[in-house]
Design a protein around this nucleic acid. Structure first.
Lengths: 203, 203
DNA sequence: TGTACATCAGTGAACGCGCGTTCACTGATGTAC
DNA sequence: TGTACATCAGTGAACGCGCGTTCACTGATGTAC
């Protein structure tokens, strides 16, 4: 049977990706429960009606959007690691500094979903919960692969420190409070990762 | 002017405290946005209609409930510290073990609001946000007061590690995954607090 | 002591609104001839 | 090349429902006599 294409072959797929892409940001910025379908579609320049030609439910979009968020985050971290290596800097310090940076603090919609959504993830329906769990494990492995061998077993705690401290910093009232928490978090992460503070300061 | 009391003097106040008390648990268990006024009143054995004779708005109850949650948490931690001291154990290890315990993991409704609500707190209206910020600062001071002097400047990072790791553990799929993350978190917290793992194991 | 009454904590129906979802439709498109 | 048409991505109104909030009321209570 001949398949007749009325619209450009990838028209619908492009739109779908646009929805998932903007949802990945909005969900991290505003939270899952607090984000509605109408708003998520509006962010992609569309109206609510078309939503269900692309996704079976809001949860289905949330699941895909969180998967995309994770892919983006991993890509950013890989770039940090690659750049550091190319310049002869420590990859783990680059990861720590990138995670606990003011840039990351100010842009929860573009950052790690663990710190942006935190406890809300554990309350989601099973498929979404599992997606979040997979994201967590990927990040732990990514950290473990950059930490000196004797400290690799601490990768989970290091991720906990990074994501927990960024959340606290985002709660800080003044810019100074926020910076102080980020600084504390970086120093502590260096200690856990077994890298010297001296190197860190130099980097 | 004579004040005539038709109901027992503290009747209304008792009811109000009951609402705040159950809300403090429900909000931490289910999240703020996901908890409705009808449900919060039902948890206290009441119907929605009476809500506004007690509180000006949902946000007003949330604010009070989070303050109560913080008072309860501080009381629990003070008890942990007092018990440890009475038995000659390390207070900071007692705090760390209490925070990263399976008991705390399983009961987000009874635990630290930072790990139960996480990123949602930073998205609340200013008064609630400030309440959460105050809770964070109280916990940081509490930790700082129990950590050896040279490491007191790390109290914020230690709190970040505790709350972040507990959140990750709650995301863990299996009981073993959860336990592994709690274990990692405890070891890492001992390191940051400058207490020996040996002592910790013995405690 | 017993009865009538003023009080007010709490009830339950209703408000407008936004939610997630459904559906009849519209109009821009590529194809057929 | 130009026109008619079949397709289908996207629109916008509507569904039932639960939200936060309001309000007329009810009925259990302590007080007055």
């Amino acid at each position: 049977m001949k398949v007749i294409m009325r619209y450009p072959k990838d028209h619908k797929e492009t739109t779908r990706r646009r929805i998932v892409g903007s949802a990945a940001q909005t969900l991290r910025r505003d939270g899952i429960v607090a984000s509605g379908v109408i708003g998520l579609m509006a962010d992609a320049g569309l109206t609510q009606g078309g939503f269900y030609t692309h996704f079976a439910s809001k949860d289905a979009l949330v699941d895909e959007a969180l998967q995309l968020a994770m892919v983006e985050t991993r890509r950013k971290f890989s770039r940090l690691v690659a750049d550091a290596r190319a310049e002869g800097r420590s990859a783990i310090i680059a990861l720590i500094d990138g995670y606990l940076s003011e840039r990351h603090l100010e842009a929860p919609g573009m950052g790690c979903l663990l710190s942006s959504l935190g406890a809300e993830l554990a309350r989601q329906p099973e498929p979404i919960r599992r997606t979040a769990e997979r994201a967590m494990n990927e990040l732990i492995e990514l950290i473990a692969s950059e930490v000196p061998a004797p400290y690799q077993g601490r990768a989970g705690a290091i991720l906990g420190l990074l994501s927990g401290t960024l959340q606290l910093a985002r709660l800080g009232g003044t810019r100074n409070d926020q910076r102080a928490l980020l600084d504390q978090g970086r120093s502590a992460a260096y200690v856990l990762a077994g890298v010297e503070m001296r190197n860190a300061a130099a980097a």
